[in-house]
Design a protein around this nucleic acid. Structure first.
Length: 893
RNA sequence: GGGAGCAUAGCUCAGCUGGUUCAGAGCAUCUGCCUUACAAGCAGAGGGUCACAGGUUCGAAUCCUGUUGCUCCCA
């Protein structure tokens, strides 16, 4: 079997993914092995793969593949969430296109359309993940609205309600007029916007006969008071004007009433220290229905709540004017009307913060509404403990503070959504207005009959609302193993708590915190040991990748261009743990170049044929690489234990490219032989090389699963059983490291580089052989390395001398002196200059070391090994200096 | 306004409890090479006052204080 000149990733990816699926390598069932579990952060069922997913899932796949190769029972559970607001909006839009209005449908009809939609378009993202190579156990794929998953959600609701942790009440909530639903505090994003501040004057009712000449726009006009507001369209909902009792400008207003312009409704002037005297005019319009602070103010002063807005954000008849107009259109129109009425004093530019719905981007409307809430204090307390005491580790640790702050200041969670797509709240209302909470209508009836035995099922009306999607995803690590409905089943007992969760920091509160709460509440157990928080994928200008900016490459295009392996490597190369990553396609290019390098290295080895008759001793090279390999394994292991995936990858990259390809293969590579189909090499070298290659494939597999699997099955590794795949191979264990050899080889490689450098600077071809002599000052036995040096540096002979060779080009490696006799004249002046520079550096270096050693406080305070090190540095520098000076002397003659 | 974090080579980042190899890696750049695995490559080289200013220390990229600039979270 020969190997193609270039690798065809698309073909291999298709082939091996299917093979892994067919052989059930991703499948996990509980057994006697130690489990290693990851639950996927379920992407939105309507979603398509973006760069954030690529990063996130590459990391998960690397972790899960590594665990599999370490003999763990690796289980990665995939799935999607139902994203109630986003999905419902999509379905509503689709229906609209078909001329169907949601309000003409029953709940059941709507859900039928929604499920059709989901079955047709939902879960595309999971198919896309397969292209990336994600080794999820697809048999376990879950959707948060699956029947069993929904049942778990209802169970959890009933449980929390029973515990008194869920209650119903009227609160000021965040209303999304576009999604026509409430959203939680966490789903409101603050944004700074430039708005106008409108100064509007209200006529004071009981002060009359003012001097007409008095300036109209003075805020101290006693006939009027002037308020400043960014929301003039809400004046019709005003319940009072509030001033600070200490504000001396307005003492004349105490106890007065004023008229709202345009509608002339009379409202009182109230006093409260809440009002900031130096913002605006110091007069605050109080609109309890449309502002949280105003609502609280209104509560203190027993003000009426006048809600002038419809659910879609348009004005209702209570507004009296502009009825039916959208709030923003109304704002523009009312400004004109106020102006015409002479009530608009002025407008000013003003930067203020507004809340925007994370789901629909609509400006959030504070709205007073009856909703279901989850008490957070009780749930947050233990959930905070898990993180503070290190039971659940956040990586990087800096997020602990953020987490703590949120958990300590959390407010009750509004869990009702005025939607149909989701789990309907299991609360049933009775004709009396009372309600019962139960898992099913039948159970609810039983509850109801405890209140009044005469109730029938027709007396029960279920709450219309559904639960927040996060309420169901909070159960994810438990419910995917059916641990809510069956808390003692073998699966949950085996897989839970899961090991690692990989997710974005922005989701820390929405999701991570709620999973910890649910885990504690239902199982008194954490849901996972470690939470690895990835950064945000940004473009190279540092902008967050987003659809609207159009700065995000399509992941599928990237994979088509650079191969899935290339993109995986590219993602990891630029992803420092926990920091944002500045993505650049260049990294994927580097990833695919790496794949190419491996392919070509393989081609080289593939072209060899073991031959017993060949005499070659590569034992030094072999032992050296074995040691380097083990060193790299140690490094990789350390990096992984700290979730430094990027560095673990780089260590592997350098091991393969620099140590294996550039050094080892060049050392053992047989000289080119003509007239043979395959290059003959001694059996020992061949076997060692093949075995190294196999180990390298294992090490690389988690990052580059496809390429490694493809090569793994080549015949040079012998016949493979059909289940003997790289994906389930066991990672090599760390063996012995000959540090002396590695250290010496380092000096040898320096010497080789110097010889090449001499060739380069003298314009000599690498093909031209050169003689090299060494004056050994160290303990290195160069005889041992002479074959390697000769081979790689293209040296005719390695000689040993006791004296410097006059007129030869020279250099120092370690503390040993090397001489290359050239047939060309060397530039004495340039050489002198180089040596002078070297001498200068060494003298300076020596001076600083001497100064240190001469300092008594250093010698007495520093650790002995540090002092010893300084002495060694001194000795080394002195030795080098001596060589340089001798060379200089030689040149002078 | 409150809190957190960051600032090291042109770019992206390492640099752990101060002390060898403390100023590093990858990419990019420059020079020379189509050298029988690889030009998606090979061989070499250059490049940084570790944001700024103080302090602690025998010794600071590393610890402390302040300044500046950026990012994120919360209100």
């Amino acid at each position: 079997m020969s190997i193609a000149k270039t690798y065809s990733p698309a073909e291999a990816e298709e082939k091996w993914y299917q093979y892994w699926l067919d052989k059930k390598f991703f499948r996990s069932v509980p057994d006697e092995r130690e489990p290693y579990t990851i639950v996927i952060p379920p992407p939105n069922v309507t979603g398509v793969l973006h760069m954030g997913h690529m990063l996130n899932n590459t990391i998960q796949d690397v972790l899960i593949r590594r665990a599999r190769m370490k003999g763990k029972n690796a289980c990665w559970v995939p799935g999607t969430d139902h994203a109630s607001i986003a999905t419902e909006a999509k379905v509503v839009a689709m229906l609209k296109e078909q001329g169907i209005s949601k309000k003409d449908l029953t709940r059941e009809q709507f859900l039928a359309y929604a499920y059709d939609w989901k079955n047709k378009y939902g879960g595309i993202i999971l198919e896309q993940l397969k292209k990336l190579g994600a080794s999820c156990d697809w048999d376990r794929t879950k959707f948060t609205m699956d029947e069993d998953m929904s049942e778990a959600v209802i169970d959890y609701f009933v449980h929390l309600h029973k515990q008194g942790l869920i209650y119903r009440g009227v609160r000021m909530i965040n209303w999304d007029p576009q999604g026509k639903t409430a959203v939680s505090d966490e789903e409101v994003q603050r944004k700074e916007v430039n708005q106008k501040l409108y100064y509007i004057k209200y006529q004071v009712a009981s002060i009359e006969n003012q001097d007409e000449n008095q300036s109209n726009d003075s805020i101290l006009d006693t006939k009027y008071l002037t308020i400043a507001t960014t929301r003039p369209e809400t004046i019709m909902a005003d319940a009072a004007i509030c001033i600070n009792p200490n504000d001396e400008r307005y003492t004349h207003l105490h106890g007065k009433t004023v008229f709202i312009p345009l509608i002339n409704r009379e409202i009182p002037v109230i006093l409260d220290e809440y009002v900031t005297m130096d913002f605006g005019t110091g007069c605050l319009k109080v609109t309890p229905a449309h502002d949280l602070n105003d609502y609280e103010l209104g509560q203190r002063h027993n003000l009426p709540v006048i809600d002038i807005l419809n659910d879609d954000g348009s004005l209702n008849e209570k507004a009296q004017i502009l009825v039916g107009e959208d709030r923003f259109a109304a704002r523009k129109k009312i400004a004109v009307m106020l102006e015409e009425a002479g009530a608009l004093v002025k407008t000013e530019d003003n930067v203020s913060q507004i809340g925007v719905s994370e789901r629909t981007s609509a400006v959030i409307e504070p709205k007073l509404s009856m909703q279901w809430f989850c008490k957070m204090k009780e749930l947050a307390q233990p959930a905070l403990e898990y993180v503070l005491n290190g039971d659940v580790k956040l990586i990087p640790e800096k997020f602990i503070n953020t987490y703590r702050h949120w958990m300590e200041n959390v407010r009750d969670w509004n869990i009702s959504r005025q939607l149909w797509w989701g789990q309907q709240i299991p609360a049933y209302y009775l004709p009396t207005g009372e309600y019962v909470v139960a898992k099913t209508k039948e159970l609810a009836l039983a509850e109801a009959q405890k209140l009044n035995a005469l109730y029938t099922i027709d007396d029960l009306t279920q709450d219309e609302d559904v639960l927040d999607t996060w309420f169901s995803s909070g159960l994810w690590p438990i419910s995917v193993f059916d641990g809510v409905r069956n808390p003692d089943n073998p699966e949950i007992n085996y897989y839970y708590p899961t090991n690692d969760l990989v997710t974005a920091p922005e989701i820390l509160f929405f999701w991570v915190a709620r999973m910890i709460m649910a885990g504690h509440e239902l199982r008194q157990q954490k849901p996972f040991n470690n939470v690895y928080l990835t950064g945000i994928v940004r473009d190279k200008l540092g902008r967050k990748m987003s659809k609207s900016l159009g700065n995000s490459p399509d992941p599928l295009d990237l994979m088509a261009k650079y191969s899935a392996d290339g993109v995986r490597v590219g993602m990891l190369l630029c992803s420092p743990a926990g920091n944002d990553l500045m993505f650049d396609e260049k990294y994927c290019e580097q990833g695919s170049a790496f794949g190419n390098k491996i392919w070509n290295a393989f081609k080289l080895v593939k072209g060899w044929e073991a031959d017993n008759s060949i005499q070659a001793d590569n034992s030094v090279a072999i032992e050296w690489f074995q040691s380097r390999f083990n060193q790299a394994l140690v490094e990789i292991e350390e990096n992984f234990s700290q979730y430094r995936l990027s560095e673990a990858l780089m260590a592997s990259y350098k091991l393969v490219w620099d140590d294996f390809c550039s050094s080892y293969l060049e050392m053992v590579k047989p000289p080119y032989q003509t007239d043979v189909e395959r290059q003959k090499i001694d059996t020992a070298s061949y076997n060692a090389t093949v075995s190294f290659f196999e180990n390298i494939l294992k090490v690389l597999h988690p990052y580059m699963p496809f390429l490694t699997e493809e090569l793994w099955h080549d015949e040079i590794f012998g016949k493979r059983d059909e289940l003997e795949c790289c994906i389930v191979a066991q990672l090599p264990s760390i063996g012995e490291i000959n540090t002396q050899l590695v250290g010496e080889m380092d000096v040898v490689q320096q010497a080789i580089a110097q010889v090449r450098n001499i060739r380069n600077s003298k314009g000599l071809s690498p093909k031209e052989t050169l003689p090299l002599a060494v004056k050994v000052n160290s303990a290195i036995d160069y005889q041992q390395y002479s074959a390697i040096i000769k081979h790689i540096a293209n040296i005719t002979e390695l000689g040993f001398v006791n004296e410097a060779i006059a007129g030869a080009a020279n250099f120092v490696a370690g503390t040993d002196e090397f001489f290359v006799t050239l047939n060309i004249e060397i530039d004495v002046e340039a050489e002198k200059e180089r040596l002078e520079k070297e001498r200068e550096y060494l003298t300076g270096f020596l001076r600083s070391v001497d100064a240190k050693l001469a300092n008594e406080r250093f010698v007495s305070n520093a650790k002995p090994e540090v002092v010893e090190n300084e002495r060694k540095k001194k000795a080394d520098a002195e030795a080098k200096l001596k060589i340089v000076e001798e060379n200089l002397k030689g040149l002078a003659n």
